[in-house]
Deep mutational scan, measured.
Amino acid sequence: DIIVVALYDYEAIHHEDLSFQKGDQMVVLEESGEWWKARSLATRKEGYIPSNYVARVDS
């Protein structure tokens, strides 16, 4: 799995977006363009995230 960590807070604009806080970790489910589908490890919610707001966690 690709794990990313939030670099900034993000408040969902559309209902399919995923809100998150700086430091939150998410599993990337699908990478396509600038918006990635991800699942929050904390809340288990899924939605689209702006890929420029996150960084990959080296395992």
Rank of each mutant, 00 (worst) to 15 (best):
S19L: 02
S32P: 05
A38E: 01
N52V: 09
R56N: 07
E30D: 14
V27D: 02
E11V: 15
K45Q: 12
E31T: 14
I2P: 08
E46W: 07
R39N: 02
A42I: 12
V5S: 04
S19T: 08
A38M: 04
K22M: 08
K22I: 08
S19F: 04
D1R: 12
Y8D: 06
V27C: 09
G33E: 06
R44Q: 14
D1Y: 14
A55D: 07
A6D: 00
G23L: 03
A12V: 03
V4G: 00
A38C: 12
N52I: 09
D17N: 11
Y10G: 01
I13F: 09
E11I: 15
D9L: 03
E31F: 15
K22W: 04
Q25S: 08
R56D: 04
I13P: 07
A55I: 13
E34W: 15
T43K: 04
M26E: 00
K37P: 05
I13A: 10
E30K: 09
Y10H: 06
V4H: 05
F20Y: 01
I49L: 04
I2N: 11
V54Q: 01
Q25C: 14
E46K: 05
G33I: 04
D24H: 06
Y8T: 06
S51W: 10
R39V: 09
A55W: 08
V57I: 14
Q25W: 15
Q21D: 06
K45D: 09
R56Y: 14
I3P: 03
I49H: 01
D9C: 07
L18I: 08
D9V: 04
D58N: 13
G47K: 01
G23K: 02
E34Y: 15
W35I: 08
L18T: 04
K22C: 09
E11K: 12
D58Y: 10
E31W: 15
V4I: 08
F20C: 03
L18W: 02
G33T: 06
W36P: 03
L41Y: 06
Y53V: 04
I13G: 08
M26A: 01
I13S: 10
L7D: 01
Y48K: 09
R56I: 12
D58T: 13
E46P: 02
T43M: 03
E11N: 11
R56M: 10
Y8Q: 10
V27W: 10
A42R: 15
K22V: 09
Y53G: 06
L7K: 06
V27I: 14
E31A: 15
V57D: 07
Y10P: 00
